[in-house]
């Protein structure tokens, strides 16, 4: 994903709703995907994504251009999603499971469909919901968003070695799960 232009950010910071809508359009699916993959369901993803964009709106003028806009928005998104996930876990007790069903409609990319796709989606959810949320967030940023270690470290405000160890533990666990369930696919 390319970073959006400085002028657009400044216009939005000055209250131009059209500019803010352009920012929303550019980032909505990235924000929503991260939120959905971390919280595990649409209801919480909706809440997290709404929080994210209201926060972005609120803090735009203070953005300051010191990090890339992408890093900044990913940081706000990860924070919001992890916060909501933790709140929900506390409310519901230790194990909250990810939605088993896939919402019909706009959740699947139009170019891939059918039973294989649904099966893959189930596999992904099965993997993610069994990880602690800090490992899950790292893995989502790495595998789904394609971020480099350095970027993940900036987004989550952790050390690069922490990124490494979280990814390592997450993958070890998933390998064990895939093995005990007779393969990942």
């Amino acid at each position: 994903m390319n970073d959006i232009s400085r002028t657009l950010i400044i216009r939005a910071a000055e209250g131009d709703m059209g500019a803010f809508e352009e920012i929303y359009t550019a980032y909505a699916s990235y924000v929503y995907t991260i939120a959905f993959r971390i919280t595990g369901n649409r209801e919480d993803a909706d809440e997290a994504a709404q929080d994210v964009f209201l926060n972005v709106y609120r803090k735009l003028a203070g953005f300051g251009f010191r990090s890339s806009f992408k890093t900044w928005i990913y940081r706000i998104t990860s924070n919001a999603a992890i916060t909501i996930y933790r709140k929900r876990s506390k409310e519901k007790g230790r194990n909250i499971s990810f939605d088993e069903t896939i919402d019909s409609g706009h959740s699947i990319e139009p170019d891939i469909g059918g039973i294989d796709r649904q099966h893959d989606e189930k596999t992904v959810r099965g993997f993610l919901w069994r990880l602690p949320e800090d490992q899950r967030a790292c893995l989502v940023l790495r595998e789904i968003e394609g971020l480099k270690y350095e970027e993940i470290a900036q987004v989550l405000k952790i050390k690069i070695n922490t990124v490494r160890s979280r990814l390592k533990r997450a993958r070890e666990k998933l390998i064990a799960i895939a093995g005990s369930e007779g393969g990942a696919r």
């Binding site: 993803a45 959740s107 891939i112 893995l139 595998e143």
Partner: peptide
């Protein structure tokens, strides 16, 4: 094994709001 898992995650659908 690690590559299989990575492949599942990397090909997962982007979710639109």
């Amino acid at each position: 094994e690690a590559m299989d898992i990575a492949a599942s995650l990397r090909s997962s659908a982007r979710i639109d709001p």
